[in-house]
Structures are given as structure tokens and as C-alpha cells.
Design a protein around this nucleic acid. Structure first.
Lengths: 201, 201
DNA sequence: TGTGAGATACGCAACGGTTCGTATCGTTTT
DNA sequence: AAAACGATACGAACCGTTGCGTATCTCACA
């Protein structure tokens, strides 16, 4: 998504890493100030105090700038909290995500995910840098939970991941209710019922 | 959302209802042809063969036009299929929604829901005309299912609705997998487990 | 170990193009 | 008489690009 972070320098003045960071920070601040839509390359340039040429040299459009800023802010996908029970780690991670969604990250995910519906490049970047890494972690924790027992043998992990996380994204976008701790626990609980080994019926 | 469908005519030439419909049709066709983003008021005007003033006189922006066109096309929220078992009606309705999501309606919902993230007016219109009416129907069917027995006594209906439908919306937007019949049945099944009366544990 | 040439980034300004939403015509319909 | 209609012009905003002169760095070569 970045313009060309790995480009080869064959002499000449190198691009300023400091500027790079300053642009990303300004972009992110702007989004949170005025909303994604109202942000323009010109605005980012003005806020950073650079010429917009400098920005266009590195990114193709504003979505790319903001996407990179978003990812850079995240750092590596946050590790799951410690707990020897895999399912409890999952629950805690759901709460962590929910808490993030109540703040800045929520606003950013909301905007980027929406924008991604209109921009295949952005959608790809979002999926690869946000969605898939996080799904992978959940996948692993669910695999471990399976080994620890209690979950059904024929577990459909992909569908299970959706059951745990889709409601959180749903509320983020629909605004049908708050993403409260109580709600997340409720989601966890009912999704977990769907994955348990059946006693009998 | 409409410009002023209920405005009072105090003499003068009345607005043409025929034009109104023609504009809505052209708007919807355009969205499906070129995508929401690429649609402009000018484009709708050109396709309809009217001046764009005529459109601006009735709607504030393109999102409003398309939203009204979308709603008009839907007609009243489709009734649930017949079946004496409430939970089976729910499952069938989920499949109906999924089928719609695989086609034109899916493309429209996806675009409108995304656009709504940037436009509070549009979000309100979407919630009131799409989301809430449909949630209400699910609410009622779940209430009936509760009376028919088998579901837990302390059922959280709002959370339950999310469990059944959020994964479908999730896949619509994330593209992590198809909204196939098998998937929907899987979602139904695991969500239903979360709502069942517990036998014991 | 210098040093100078070449390459590239930088800020700035200006450009043509597009789209938006508004305003202003004269005309048509009720 | 009043309001809708089509047509057209308009200013504003933003886009993405270009040209300019300057700044900064690398590399080749002495």
C-alpha cells in the first residue's frame, strides 16, 4: 500500500524518514479531527508543512496515506493476553478489541472499512494488514482450545471466528447498541455455546 | 430522506411524479452499472434526460436519491416465509436475506452501508428504513419461538438477533468467504445453540 | 582523504480538469 | 400568477501534474 517503502536508493538525496512520520501523524490526526471524507492531500500537506508534491511522490492517494498511518500506529497485531485456558484468552482478546473499538481505533476501522468498499486496493490492504492477521490469531487460539477439549469435534473454525467477532463489527457500523463489556461477554457466551461439544439432545 | 415528498402545492406547476420515478430508476440503474462512487447527480440527470436543477430541487445529494430509490425498490419488508415453527421461519428468512445479498440488493446494501458511515443523515435513513424494520421482524419471530419453547428463559433478543445476522453482514463487507447456503445454515445452527435452553452441564 | 558531478528530494507556485451545488435565464404547465 | 421545467453559467474545492530553484546525499575518481 505504501508508495514504495522498499525502493532502492541509487544516489541522490534520500527521502526524509522524519517527514514520512510527520505526514503519517498529521494524516491520522486530521482523520480524527474532521473525519475521513473531509481529509485531503492538500490538507495533510498544509498541516504537516510540506508541499503536496512530497506526499504524491510517496503515496498514490489519501486512502493509501491513511491506511499506512493506521497500520503504523497499530504496530504488530497485539498478542493475546496470558491465560492457560485458550477460551479465556479468546474472551479477553474480544474485550481488548471492543475497548479499542470504543476509541480512536474504532473510528479508524469504521472509516477505513467503509472506504474499502469503494477501493479494491484499500480493501486488499485492510484485509491483509488488519483482518487476516487477527483472524489467524483467533484461528490458532481456537485450535488450541479444541485440543484442550470441550469444543465439538467437527468445529468449523472459520464460521466460529465469525460468530465471535462479527457481532462486534456489526455494532461498530450499525450503531444498534453499544459495544459494552457486558455485550461482548454475552456474544462470547452465546457463540461459545455454538462451539461446545454437545452433551446430548 | 426524500427532498420533501409531503410538500404543499399552493398553485403553480406541480412536480411531475413521472419524472420522480424516472429519476429513481435511472439512479439505481447507474449504481449497478458503474458503482456508487462513480455515480453523480449530473450523471443521473443526463441518463434521465432532465436538468440537474430538477434533481437538486428534490434531494440534497446523490446519497439521498439513491437511498430513496433503494427503499422504493424494496417495497415493504418482505414477510417471513410460512412455517408453523418460528425458528424454521427464521432460518428460511436468513436464507432469503443471504440470497438477496448475493445479488443486486447485496451490492446496494454494501454501498449504502459504507456511505452511511460518512453521512449521519444517510445512516439514519438506512437504519430506519432497512435495519430496524428487519430487526423488528426477527425480534417477533424470536419472541414467538420463545413461547413455543426450547429457547432459554433469559434470552437476550437483541444479542440473539446479532448472532444470527451479524455474520452475514460481516461476510458481505469483509469478503472473507461466500454467503453460501451452507454457510448460512452453519451460522443458524451455531447461533441457535447459543439460544437453546440448556439441558445441563 | 578529499572533492566535484550527478541524482534525487524538497517547497513553492501554477496549471488544466473535474465535480459540486447554486444561480439565473426563458419556457411550460397548472 | 405561480411554480416546475431544461439549459447554461458560475465560483469553489480538490485533484494530480509540472516546472522551477534549492538542498542534500551518494558515488566515482583523483
Amino acid at each position: 500500500m505504501s508508495g514504495d517503502g522498499t525502493r532502492i536508493t541509487r544516489g541522490g538525496r534520500p527521502r526524509s524518514e522524519q517527514l514520512h512520520q510527520a505526514i503519517l501523524k498529521a494524516a491520522l490526526d486530521l482523520v480524527l479531527e474532521v473525519g475521513f471524507r473531509a481529509v485531503s492531500i492538500e490538507g495533510i500537506a498544509a498541516k504537516t508543512g510540506v508541499g503536496k508534491t512530497t506526499i504524491y511522490r510517496r503515496w498514490p492517494n489519501k486512502a493509501a496515506v491513511i491506511m499506512e498511518a493506521f497500520i503504523a500506529q497499530l504496530g504488530p497485531a497485539s498478542r493475546f493476553p496470558e491465560d492457560e485456558r485458550a477460551v479465556e484468552r479468546l474472551r479477553l482478546q474480544m474485550q481488548t478489541t471492543a475497548k479499542a473499538f470504543r476509541g480512536r481505533v474504532g473510528a479508524l476501522v469504521k472509516a477505513l472499512l467503509a472506504e474499502a468498499q469503494f477501493d479494491p486496493e484499500l480493501a486488499k490492504a485492510f484485509r491483509e494488514n488488519w483482518t487476516l492477521p487477527r483472524r489467524k490469531l483467533v484461528f490458532e487460539v481456537l485450535e488450541e482450545a479444541t485440543q484442550q477439549g470441550g469444543l465439538r469435534k467437527d468445529l468449523d473454525i472459520e464460521a466460529a471466528i465469525d460468530a465471535f467477532y462479527a457481532p462486534i463489527y456489526y455494532r461498530l457500523q450499525m450503531g444498534t447498541g453499544p459495544i459494552s463489556e457486558a455485550y461482548v461477554d454475552k456474544v462470547y457466551e452465546q457463540a461459545m455455546e455454538g462451539q461446545r461439544q454437545r452433551v446430548k439432545r
